[in-house]
Design a binder for these strands. Structure first.
Lengths: 369, 369
DNA sequence: CTGAAAGCGCTTACAG
DNA sequence: CTGAAAGCGCTTACAG
């Protein structure tokens, strides 16, 4: 039943060439005549040959495997799998496999996969403000990308949603919709220590200060949100309701039932398009897409760039949130300029030598060199 | 910055032994004197040595990597990540890493990871009724485990929730709560083709037939569920409401807002404990835990058994759903006997040589030999 | 209880 | 444009 897999030796024999020629056809590191190439490719096809990954890794020091360090699941982790799936698919496109490393393993996990050589590059998710893993991955010397931008990060590639801009966008949209208040739920206050939340709040506070929108954090536990919203609207005027974090999507099922469908309330949703499809009523409110698939794919492509481009330097890419419904597309429809700290022309603003690109198309750009 | 990792040669030199002795200490495949072992271990510690995975895999044909074939994300995939995370953590415990293979790759993906030798075993999720991957994985000769039991499966290890029993449990609980109707949502009708749904419906139909509970499928789209439930209760009497699939958890946020809190309605929730924590009101309804972490862990342990036990035969393990709230624990509180097709004493009922264990503790058992 | 040596299947200088 | 050969770092018979 389990015959051992064919080797390049078998392919060479069948094609009538040397074993090294088979290897050269595969790696492309030497010109091969069309006729020879053809014979080798036919033999490969006929035998169903795949190069042994252990031998290849041992010899070339390239395993073809990217380590993905995933955070411990917390609350509703629908969000997490969206990243993981997209990373795996995009890596596949470039011929890489994804190996899971759990956050639980910490810096030791990074050392392990580096030392064993099982991974030739790493993607880390949800880096905290003072995270031992950053030092570990930098020290490892392997190419790496962070999904999720720490507030302060010395040098290295990052791909993340532009949360600060998201904050400004939500404030602007609330104003545009004639609201006097913005009620935030999903515990943004409690989770201020999280990089994404703190950056989001930075944007909200900045933009609300300059525009006069009244912002209320901490709407309380989930079931209390509708009541808090109604109270706020009754006492303080028209109120926009917005929730951050993975909890949001669950919460919007609430909105979908009509609990928040009242004249004085205006829901703004942060949700993936396909999740929106679950609840038809979500189609009626302005939605902003957190672009998780886009971010995951860009993270992989950035890593591939670092792996394949000689002397490539790390890059910070902030992807713009995108209005899907109830606003201009591309995220640039509302107060695009704002009081933002980064330009829209590719200005480098990061310390430590990393360049931040924010292309004219509303997302950071990764240049091909 | 990136000095190359130390080798077993380096360890041997430092410990003053031969390179093979280092290897024997690591593999444990030969008795080593305590003194020598000690010196080797110290050297390993001092150098931070980890054996090169490529070399090890090349020589031993054991990569230490388990492939996990994950389904394409659909709808709310919170559920998926719960499996993936638990599988990764449990594999870690046994010294294995998890490599993601996307369902998108299909049978070709299985051939690839088998032929390259990158995986030495496989876990497959969400096998369909006629799935090309089953033939591929059987033919590969690698040890494998399915998470999710196809209705008909020839021979091989399976770990899954006992969906048939879940069906019976829900019917019994509904009756116990004085209901005359059971409204099922989460599109159980449309998704009848899915293995889990069809097995669940089998249990529901069987038990409702023998008890006279009126079962209604297809409660419609999410937002319509509360109205349908109220209508049913008004015309037909007290109604239990139960939803299958990942959508359930989102839906229960609806219940949590009180949309289903009416005298004639009785919500029964299928949800992980930690998700229940999001919504305090969930604590007030009977909940049944789909035991995803338990299933994932058992899948890994079953695979480890196949990998390490000489001549181990595949085994089918059905994990019992567990009442968490509003019922006896351990799932055996309600109609434990039922009209079920499997005993509670470890009787083998599967065709094709696979044995089904259903231990007295309410879950299938994996014996250590 | 330990060592010297072969060899897993590749990639890549070295040669022609 | 192609081949013969070294060697990546292990594991595991073969020897003592």
């Amino acid at each position: 039943m389990r015959r051992s897999a064919p080797t390049s030796q078998d392919v060479a024999r069948l094609a009538g060439v040397s074993q090294s020629t088979v290897s050269y056809v595969l790696t492309g590191s030497r010109p091969i005549s069309p006729a020879t190439r053809r014979r080798v490719e036919d033999a490969i096809e006929k035998l169903g040959y795949h190069p042994n990954s252990g031998a290849r890794a041992l010899r070339s020091r390239r395993s073809g495997v990217i380590g993905l360090m995933v955070p411990e699941a917390y609350g509703s982790d629908a969000v997490l799998m969206r990243f993981v799936g997209a990373v795996a698919r995009e890596a596949q496109r470039f011929g890489y496999d994804i190996l899971l490393v759990t956050a639980q393993e910490g810096a030791r996990g990074i050392h392990r996969v580096v030392r064993t050589g099982v991974c030739e590059a790493l993607i880390l998710m949800e880096i905290g403000r003072h995270d031992e893993r950053v030092a570990a991955v930098v020290e490892s010397g392997l190419p790496f990308v962070l999904i999720g931008k720490p507030v302060d990060f010395p040098n290295g590639s990052v791909v993340d949603l532009d949360f600060e801009r998201l904050g400004r966008m939500v404030v602007d949209r609330g104003l545009e919709l004639g609201c006097e208040n913005l009620l935030l739920f999903g515990e943004p206050g409690h989770r201020r220590h999280r990089n994404d939340v703190s950056r989001f709040l930075l944007g909200v506070e900045e933009q609300s200060r300059s525009t006069g929108l009244n912002v209320v954090l901490d709407a309380g536990d989930l079931p209390e949100v509708p009541r808090r919203a109604r109270d706020l609207a009754a006492s303080g005027g028209r109120t926009a309701v917005f929730g951050l974090s993975g909890v949001t999507e669950v919460l919007f099922a609430i909105a979908a039932t009509g609990a928040l469908e009242e004249p004085g309330l205006q829901v703004i949703a942060l949700t993936d398009e396909d999740l929106a499809a679950i609840s038809p009523l979500l189609a009626t409110v302005p939605r902003v897409d957190p672009r998780r698939v886009e971010i995951s794919e860009r993270a992989v492509r950035e890593l591939v760039r670092l792996l394949r481009e000689e002397g490539a330097t790390p890059r910070v890419t902030l992807v713009e949130p995108e209005w899907v419904q109830g606003g201009a597309s591309r995220g640039s429809g509302v107060g695009g300029g704002g009081a933002g700290g980064h330009g829209s022309d590719g200005t480098a603003i990061e310390a430590g030598g990393a360049a931040e690109d924010s292309g004219a198309d509303g997302t950071g750009e990764i240049g091909e060199t």
